[in-house]
Structure formats: structure tokens, C-alpha cells
């Protein structure tokens, strides 16, 4: 059994428990051991790109250092994933930043980006393998047209995230095929849902998430899946659409027979 460090992040402990519990349960079934580090902190939700920001990057570095002990660091939430991967990329390309971080954290040795960071989807693709996953599926999503929603955080900036082709991604579509569903390709799958703007500008969030849902519906989707709690919130709450929105881990657990099918 391969062991990975698992960073749930703040929201998975509260509003997005489904994303978390089904991810853990499925990993066990797929032969992956996930170890949660002690005393982890919130990643901050957004990566600050400013070159002269250090403090906002520290908690991500702490998490990355914790990941050094295992095969790699696994995240599920798109936002955590984005913050941690961007931090890792910048710190490995910017020695001055690595030294500054070292001083802030009082490290013996500077952390320079050695930890390999996986999104849970990458874990399925690169460690488990979609073929292997397919073999373990007991409740396939037959005849279900499923729209994968990447949003902005999973793919961009592609230089740092290096997960998939940012304009024509396939990882979630391959996941959908592995669990027996039919992926739906639609225009807005890699455009933003409105994100945190929902706090102060509901109209903008509604416009963005509405456009995403409309685009998926137009192409005939039955449901939409995401890896991000904030995307899920916007798509469910602000889009004005009734199409079901799920975390991809919910479908994964259901396909693996770990969850009671609560289909609509």
C-alpha cells in the first residue's frame, strides 16, 4: 500500500464533508493510504502572486514540508491544490523566496520544492490508473451524461499546475469514462464560476455560474461534477439551474459501491 500525505483543507472539514469522506473511503478501497498531517493550517484559499508576499505563502510551505515524509502530498479541493502547487512552483524557481521562507519558518534547511503534489484526480490517473479504477467499479454510471467542471483553479496557470492541457483537458472526462459515464464537452468547462466574488457581488457570481450551467445543459448534460466547494456552492446556489451538481468523489464512492445510491 502506497502512503501519501493528505491535506483536506478548511472547507472539507465543514461545509464540504462529502468531498472529504468519499475521497478517504475510496482511497482505501483503491489501496492508497492517506495520512493527515498534524496541526495543518488553512492554505488561504487564494494564491497571492505578488513577488513581495511571503507571509501568505507560509502555511502552504508547512504543508509541503509535511508531504516530504511520504510518496507525495494529496489535495482534493481545487483551491488548496492551486495554492499549494503555485507555492511549490514559485519556491522551486525563486531561490530568494525559498531563503526568505526558511528564515520566517526558522528551518534548518531551505525548502526548495521537492515534494510532489498530486490532486486526487492525478492520484487516480497516475498512481491508481483509470484502467485499474474501471476494474473496481461495481455501480457504473451507465447512460449518464456527465459534465466535468474544471473551473479556473484546477488547470491554471498551467506552467505551475502542470495537470492537463488547460484548454482541452481530459483528466475528468477520463475519470467519467472510468466510472462508466459519458462525458459531455462544453464551452464553459474551464471558465470561472465567479469564485469568491459571490461574497459581495451575487449578480456577477450568478452570471458566471449561470453561464457554466447553461453551457453544460446546452450540450445535454444530466449532471455536473466538480472538485471545488466554492464552485459547487456557486453552481448550486447562484446559477438558477436545477441540474444536479456533485463532487467527483461522491460519484467515485458510489461507483465503487461505498455509498448508497441517492440518485435524485
Amino acid at each position: 500500500m502506497e502512503t501519501f500525505t493528505y491535506y483536506p483543507g478548511c472547507t472539507l472539514r465543514t461545509k464540504a464533508k462529502d468531498l472529504d469522506t468519499y475521497a478517504r473511503a475510496s482511497a482505501e478501497t483503491l489501496g492508497i493510504s492517506l495520512v493527515e498531517p498534524e496541526n495543518w493550517q488553512c492554505c488561504g484559499g487564494a494564491y497571492t502572486t505578488a513577488t513581495n508576499e511571503v507571509a501568505t505563502k507560509l502555511s502552504a510551505v508547512r504543508t509541503l514540508i509535511a508531504g516530504k515524509e511520504t510518496e507525495g502530498l494529496v489535495t482534493v479541493c481545487s483551491a488548496c491544490h492551486n495554492v499549494i502547487k503555485q507555492t511549490n512552483y514559485d519556491i522551486s524557481h525563486n531561490e530568494a523566496m525559498a531563503v526568505k521562507v526558511q528564515r520566517y519558518l526558522g528551518l534548518d534547511k531551505a525548502y526548495t520544492g521537492d515534494t510532489k503534489v498530486y490532486h486526487y484526480l492525478e492520484l487516480l490517473r497516475d498512481v491508481v490508473g483509470f484502467d485499474k479504477l474501471k476494474e473496481k467499479v461495481v455501480n457504473p454510471f451507465k447512460d449518464k451524461k456527465i459534465a466535468a467542471y474544471y473551473g479556473c483553479l484546477l488547470l491554471r496557470p498551467s506552467k505551475a499546475l502542470a495537470m492537463d492541457n488547460p484548454e482541452n483537458p481530459v483528466i475528468m472526462e477520463d475519470f467519467i469514462r472510468a466510472i462508466g459515464g459519458t462525458p459531455v464537452i462544453y464551452a464553459q468547462r474551464n471558465e470561472c464560476c465567479g469564485g469568491y466574488i459571490t461574497m459581495e457581488d451575487k449578480a456577477q457570481a450568478a452570471k458566471r455560474s449561470g453561464a457554466v450551467m447553461a453551457s453544460a445543459e446546452e450540450m445535454g448534460a444530466d449532471m455536473i461534477i466538480t472538485a471545488c466547494p466554492l464552485c459547487l456552492y456557486n453552481l448550486k446556489k447562484n446559477s438558477g439551474s436545477d441540474m444536479p451538481v456533485y463532487y467527483f468523489t461522491e460519484l467515485l464512492a458510489e461507483a465503487l459501491g461505498l455509498k448508497e445510491a441517492d440518485n435524485e
Binding site: A187, Q188, E218, M219, G220
Partner: peptide, 12 residues
Amino acid sequence: GKVTPKADGTID
């Protein structure tokens, strides 16, 4: 900035 095929066969 972006070209997207639509369900009705046109392209946005």
C-alpha cells in the same frame, strides 16, 4: 480570446 462550438452547430 476563445472559440467554442455550440450545440446548434454555430461557433461562439
